[in-house]
């Protein structure tokens, strides 16, 4: 393992400027919150950081609170905290469920909201050190290779799938992401935070160098809104979504007033299925509607040579997520 410099940051602004000055000296920089994935990437050689900026020494960004406008969640909140917080559990079920579905208890106890949302892809080509787009190269090896777990939507030129469970829930709740950089703070909608490979094949989000995600704000959710996160996994723990669905539905009785449906595990970003959302508006939730929604969810799907099995899974996951939200 190479020698590393550790910088303990005391604020997000300080972390951003420390990153900037290190980069100005030609060093590779990584922010570390939980560090559950980053340290392994450094050991594996898929992250070449010279300087780790440790965010665990920052006092801010660790709370979950509400004001008149909604719920604010600090970027350093752990996934365990997120999944057990009363505010999140009562109003943002999909987010709590998504956080609770990540990895293992050991990982969730240290992994953070911001780290989960910004983690690098788990494509096995990238993780095995192939010089792919994500590693700064100019090829996606999955196209002619083992692409069983790769993108059905939004792929090209890279076909990774976004690994976060939490991110689709945040998109479905219209979260606003708070970003700090050397030049100050900015806000960006969850949807605009993530970028497709056609825009930037090397990165998964719009954070520029030296910027970091410090927290999210979720607008007030009405009391008639219900939500769920439905995750299909290859085993019962410690794995990413084969297909995940975050569904947030505002309803009147069983009638949908407004729906947000966002998929995990099928696209390089959390994938909104707007056709499903539009279809659901005004419908009564029931088996036939849910089934049709699942079929509509496949519009625009472009499977690769070895991942068409995800298509029926997407349909089933959308259908089951919606049925989960039928009034009891």
């Amino acid at each position: 393992m190479k020698a590393l410099t550790n910088v303990n940051a005391t604020s997000f602004a300080e972390a951003a400027s420390a990153a900037q000055s290190a980069r100005q000296q030609g060093q590779a920089v990584a922010f570390s919150a939980g560090g559950t994935d980053l340290l392994q990437q450094i050991k594996d050689g898929t992250d070449n950081a010279d300087v780790i900026i440790n965010l665990r020494t920052i006092g801010d960004g660790r709370s979950i609170g509400s004001d008149g406008a909604g719920i604010a969640i600090g970027g350093l909140v752990t996934l365990t905290e997120l999944s057990q917080d009363p505010l999140v559990l009562s109003g943002l079920s999909a987010l709590a469920q998504a956080a609770d579905s990540v990895g293992t208890p050991q990982i969730r106890n240290v992994a953070t909201l911001a780290g989960n949302v910004t983690q690098r892809p788990w494509c096995w080509y990238y993780r095995n050190g192939f010089n792919c787009f994500k590693a700064g190269g100019n090829e996606c090896f999955s196209v002619n290779g083992e692409n069983g777990q790769h993108a059905i939507f939004g792929g090209g030129p890279s076909y990774i799938v976004h690994p976060s469970d939490v991110a689709p829930a945040l998109v479905a709740f219209d979260a606003v992401f708070q970003v700090t950089g050397p030049n100050g703070d900015r806000e960006v909608s969850a949807e605009d935070f993530f970028v497709l490979p056609i825009t930037n094949p090397e990165r998964e989000n719009s954070l520029t160098e030296n910027e970091l995600l410090t927290g999210v704000r979720i607008p007030t959710v009405s009391s008639s809104t219900v939500s769920t996160y439905h995750k299909i996994m290859d085993r019962e723990a410690w794995t990413h979504a084969e297909v995940g669905v975050a569904a947030v539905i505002q309803r009147d009785g069983n009638q949908v007033q407004n729906a947000k449906v966002v998929l995990a595990g099928v696209a390089p970003i959390p994938w909104r299925v707007q056709a499903v959302e539009e279809f659901l508006a005004g419908q009564q939730i029931g088996e036939a509607v849910a089934r049709e929604a699942g079929e509509i969810g496949l519009q625009g799907a472009q499977p690769l040579s070895n991942n068409a099995h995800k298509l029926p899974m997407i349909s089933a996951a959308i259908e089951r997520a919606i049925l989960n939200l039928a009034a009891g």
Binding site: T104, W124, N128, R235, A237
Partner: peptide, 25 residues
């Protein structure tokens, strides 16, 4: 243990990628 057919590189070594059963399974 999957191999990339083009390069002959192993892709899925280790407990995570080989999808071993967890206690919950």
């Amino acid at each position: 243990l999957l191999y990339d057919p083009q390069s002959g590189q192993p892709l899925t070594p280790g407990y995570y990628r080989a999808r071993h059963l967890t206690h919950k399974d």
